[in-house]
């Protein structure tokens, strides 16, 4: 359904990236590109290197080989701070929220890089810094409305049920007004209803804000439904890349998922 959409220019291009930890090769010569306003899925069996790929893109891991081209600029590797300030936001496979803080405060941390007033102003919390805080608060309230989490605004996130925590984490990423959003298994461990909600949010984010999304997901139904193009990884290598329908019928992909008869 979405495959016929017009996609923009190339936003991110991963070229020939290899990453290893000691003798373990997590990624081997992986290349793919992501176009603007695209929903790009990365799939593959457990341990295929999907999360490693996201960690390379937002600078948590530094690959030994290859380059990452983002917004036309080529990088040997990214750095987390640089990635964040260039508009790459992410969520984590195992929720990484600030558990002791309220939903609102968690979302406000997402605005961190948008705060222009320097440390001293912030520390004194006087005039301009206070006005700035109010502006950011307004923006965050929009996201709270968008994700329908008004009721848990003041609740410490550690107390929220799993599905809502995932939603708050998405909210924190959105608060940064990202141009590229990395979602690491946003629907893992959810029930059908929660999954449908999350799917709707992902599609709405893409549609309303024009955000490019890279998505890791195990639920094939979801992947085939919402993504424009799919990369398939297996044992750190790319084994397929294309439209959902092409990937589904690719024999190597079927082998990787179902195993081969010997």
């Amino acid at each position: 359904m979405t495959s016929a959409r017009q996609l923009g220019d190339i936003l991110l291009k991963v070229e020939d990236v290899s990453l290893s930890f000691g003798g373990v090769k997590a990624l081997e010569h992986v290349s793919f590109d992501v176009r603007e306003r695209e929903i790009r899925a990365i799939i593959g069996p457990n341990g295929a290197g999907k999360s490693s790929m996201l960690n390379v893109i937002n600078g948590f891991y530094q690959p030994q080989e290859g380059t990452i081209m983002y917004r036309g600029r080529s990088h040997r590797h990214m750095r987390p701070h640089e990635a964040a300030s260039e508009g790459i936001a992410r969520t984590f496979q195992n929720i990484a929220l600030f558990r002791g803080m309220s939903t609102l405060d968690n979302l406000m941390t997402g605005r961190n890089l948008k705060m222009k007033k320097n440390l001293l102003w912030q520390a004194l919390y006087l005039g301009p810094a206070r006005r700035e805080e109010i502006e950011h608060r307004e923006f965050v309230e929009h996201i709270i409305d968008f994700l329908e989490i008004q009721a848990i605004r003041k609740t410490p996130v550690g107390r929220l049920p799993y599905g809502l925590q995932k939603r708050v984490e998405l909210g924190r990423a959105l608060a940064a007004e990202p141009s590229l959003l990395l979602l690491d298994e946003p629907m893992a461990g959810m029930n059908t209803e929660e999954k449908e909600d999350m799917c709707r949010f992902v599609l709405d984010v893409n549609d309303e804000f024009g955000t490019t999304i890279i998505l890791i997901e195990h639920d094939m139904g979801v992947v085939m439904d919402i993504s424009d193009r799919v990369v398939v990884l297996d044992y750190g290598r790319k084994i397929a890349d294309g439209m959902p329908d092409d990937v589904r019928t690719n024999s190597e992909v079927i082998e990787a998922y179902l195993g081969v008869m010997h």
Partner: peptide, 17 residues
């Protein structure tokens, strides 16, 4: 707030810059 965020989760704090 940033301080409290760092206290809670280093990686997440890095990811929001």
């Amino acid at each position: 707030r940033a301080l409290r965020a760092v206290a809670d989760d280093h990686q997440a704090a890095l990811s929001v810059g």
